[in-house]
Nucleic acid binder design. Structure first.
Lengths: 354, 354
DNA sequence: GTTTTTTCTGTGTCCGCGCACAAATATACG
DNA sequence: CGTATATTTGTGCGCGGACACAGAAAAAAC
């Protein structure tokens, strides 16, 4: 049953193979050179004794130092990206004894040039690994290609970029999460309801990939299962709440029959606030991400559902993947979709994304 | 920003305090005896240099051995408890280098005597810590009191037992999860619907605490928000599917208007199978736990929702808590409610409870 | 004041592994 | 065959902390 115990040390397998511990070490780490003869003897010994290195001893003895770069959009307190950074920081903290340190680089997510500039800075810093969200597709691709050339592993967060292949990706299946959003919302709406779709306007980036994919998924569900539904698309300006409020008033005047709203990014609270102020509690709302303000409106009952994607996990796992790969030399799973967590006022208090 | 680095070793603070490393060690571990004078000097040094021990070195040097006992109901392949054990095993594996080994003890969950006997065996084995679900309230309480007397820390899984206080508890808020189940189900039902409530009959245990609490939560929601709903309670016999099928036929003949079903334990698939065979796809079903068979019916669309409670996490975290407490001497959070995960056919593929 | 006991302290070894360095063996080449 | 070079191997130290042991200092007993 539980026979796994049996501590086996490198010297044990060295003895069994009739060679020195140093040679075993070379085989294990593929370093230096070893004669074919010894290699075979050692590999056999490894098989028969199923040796597993002691992580703690290994880490302790490790001399190499690693510097990771983490690129993150500039954020305000409480934002989505703050949580990602939190996860990265926790990992940095936990893995500090591995001689891993993380340097953060920030860019303005509404400005391609800022992004480009930051990429440049990262390249100058010559990190051992990079972790970043592929915000601007083209720029990210070029940057990733540079990393690939230099053999610097990189982890993608939030949205995927197939080429060049990252060491790992952590993020949500956006299409599917939009699909679910539609399903949830329609549970509370009539089959011929009118739904307002909100997304954010971005300079130089017509909504992030994520947002667009969510919308696609949402519409896919609506069109295939509730063809009688009408949808109205509205663009929010993240920088100008006042303008949004006016747009909202216009919208509800023009389409008073609107009974559902979906916000494809984390600005749910803005929409919720406006709808609440306009006394339209009949409108069912679903949005994304557990910002404090969003949760507030969820608990109040203004927002029906929030869909979460464990941003802290994304950050944490990203760093962990790099450590696994670089420090422990273990294989890493490439595509890692985060769970699509459904939160309501009833289960929000028990939710923890860690 | 990230100034946390700065490796500080025991010898560093020993030097600063003007004592030997051994003395610092004594203060840190509260072992041996240290003069008041030295203690103060060391504590000051610790404060000014904010020393954090290197976990890896600490583990490596540790000589003590720990034997944990894990008590689990006998289960069939694919059962809920298999997942709990899986989590425990993974933790055991991960923490093996800490000289922690886990011995499993099994009991028949339908038989108090078996449980009592197993408790007895565990006591004989004199483990350093115990992890178990408080299945039978009275027996568990007596057992826990014995552990308390012997100063053996114990972790409770699945259902809580306030007295004597466990080192930690990992499980779901059952009442709340029942509450949510009702809310979800009612999204697809009319306000005057008739709902069948299923729970399992247990010899000597009228349904586990968990099940009863879920039912309470469910009924609480229904009574307060949908007073026109009717509910019919049905008892399943886990051992006799044939009998269940007949009971089901009777039920649907007697109450043909039933349009919803909730199964308060992991036997969802049994009910789903019967309902499917009786061609009553109009009945909306919600159940608990991600058994393979349950997931199958969820994906087929026979079951609308499954509520999960991360059993692997419970097992894993339970062992981790014991390690944190015994090996690393760190404080442990006592009450740990697991998230109430809502699964539908749309997000099930992305779910991972680890 | 001396002996015994208790309290306190410093030193040194080991945990298992990574890695550098030196030594040994093999291969190449004139 | 001797020397130069390349390949292969063994040994030993150190990572940072736990803990045992012996010895010093202080307290208690006589």
């Amino acid at each position: 049953m539980n026979k796994s115990a049996e501590k086996i040390r490198i010297v044990d397998i060295a003895r069994l193979a009739g060679v020195s511990a140093g040679t075993v070490d070379r085989v294990l780490h593929n370093r230096g050179s070893v004669s074919e003869d010894s290699r075979i003897k050692i590999e056999n010994a490894l098989k028969t004794m199923n040796y597993r290195p002691n992580v703690y001893a290994s880490v302790l003895a490790l001399k190499k130092k690693f510097q990771f770069a983490c690129i993150i959009p500039i954020y305000n307190k409480g934002d989505y990206w703050e949580k990602v950074e939190e996860g990265v920081r926790q990992a940095a903290d936990e893995f500090a004894p591995l001689n891993v340190s993380i340097r953060f680089f920030y860019f303005n997510q509404f400005d391609v040039y800022s992004c480009r500039l930051t990429f440049e800075k990262v390249i100058q810093a010559t990190p051992d690994a990079v972790i970043f969200p592929s915000f601007f597709k083209e720029e990210s691709k070029i940057f990733a290609e540079g990393m690939q050339e230099k053999n610097i592993p990189f982890v993608l967060l939030d949205s995927m970029l197939p080429e060049p292949p990252p060491l790992a990706y952590y993020g949500q299946d956006s299409f599917q999460s939009g699909f679910i959003a539609a399903k949830l919302l329609m549970l509370s709406l009539k089959e011929d309801a009118t739904i307002a779709l909100f997304h954010t306007f971005r300079i130089g980036n017509l909504g992030s990939n994520q947002t667009l994919e969510r919308k696609k998924g949402f519409l896919d569900f609506i069109r295939s299962r509730f063809p009688k539904c009408k949808t109205v698309t509205v663009e929010l300006n993240a920088m100008n709440p006042q303008q949004n409020r006016e747009a909202m008033q216009d919208l509800l005047q023009k389409y008073p029959e609107i009974s559902g709203a979906v916000i494809f990014n984390s600005l749910t609270y803005m929409v919720a606030e406006d709808i609440e102020k306009l006394n339209r509690s009949d409108i069912q709302i679903i949005g994304y991400d557990l910002l404090e303000k969003n949760v507030e409106y969820l608990k109040k009952g203004v927002v029906n559902y929030l869909i979460a994607q464990r941003p802290e996990q994304q950050g944490y796992q990203g760093v962990k993947a790099l450590c696994d790969f670089l420090v422990f030399k273990q294989p890493v799973k490439q595509i890692n979709y985060m769970p699509i967590d459904i939160l309501t006022r009833e289960n929000i208090d028990y939710y923890s994304s860690f």
